[in-house]
Simulated assay, not measured.
Amino acid sequence: MEKHIVLALTIVLCHFALSSAIAGTATYYTPPYTPSSCYGYDNMGTMIAAASDTIWDNRAACGRNYRVTCTGPTNSGDLHPCTGASVVVKIVDYCPSGCRGTIDLSQEAFSAIAHLGAGKIKINYVRV
């Protein structure tokens, strides 16, 4: 009986973790990463991103961390762009209106989850 309860709880928790992810798209930008809208000339490293209007929230997104996972291609140029990894990035900048993705990852963060040649990918992201 106890094994069944543990199994049921595990299934519920996994379902919750998967269902809380939000679908979107990601692009990338290249150095230099400063100045940024959130931190000016302070260097925040390379696992960073710029938020589009979708998650910018009038600057409230500054400093938020998101786990981003590539889920597939957005074009026929690279049919299998994903590396299978996820990356956690910190929002340090704003990707202005007209931004091509939900989140604009640093080149280093993008390359951790997808081939750079893809340029734009489908993603799931969740705030962590």
Rank of each mutant, 00 (worst) to 15 (best):
S86I: 05
T10M: 13
I91H: 06
D93H: 08
A26E: 05
V89H: 04
V6A: 11
I11C: 11
A114L: 06
N65S: 09
D57R: 15
I91V: 15
S20Y: 10
T25S: 15
A109D: 04
V89P: 03
G101C: 08
C70D: 06
A85N: 15
I103N: 07
I5S: 09
V6D: 05
C95I: 10
V87S: 02
L105G: 02
T27V: 15
A60D: 13
E108W: 01
A114G: 05
V89D: 03
G24E: 09
G40Y: 07
D57I: 03
P35D: 13
L7V: 14
T71R: 06
I55P: 02
S97M: 08
L18I: 13
V68M: 01
L105V: 03
Y28G: 12
A109M: 04
T71E: 06
E2D: 11
G45N: 10
Y33T: 01
P81E: 05
Y94V: 02
A60T: 08
E2F: 03
D78V: 15
P31K: 13
R100T: 12
A23L: 09
H15Y: 13
G45V: 12
Y33M: 07
K90G: 03
T83E: 03
I113Q: 00
P81V: 11
E108M: 10
I11H: 03
C99H: 05
S97H: 11
N58E: 12
P73R: 11
L18D: 07
K90A: 05
S37M: 06
Y66N: 02
Y39L: 05
I22S: 10
C99L: 10
A61C: 08
A85E: 13
G77Q: 13
V92E: 02
C82P: 02
T69R: 11
C38D: 08
I48D: 00
T69K: 11
P31V: 04
A61Y: 01
R64N: 13
S76F: 03
G77I: 06
G98H: 08
F110S: 09
I113N: 00
S20L: 12
A85I: 00
E108A: 15
G45C: 08
L105N: 01
L116I: 11
M44T: 06
R59T: 13
P31R: 12
S76G: 00
C95E: 07
A49P: 06
G24D: 10
I103H: 07
A8V: 10
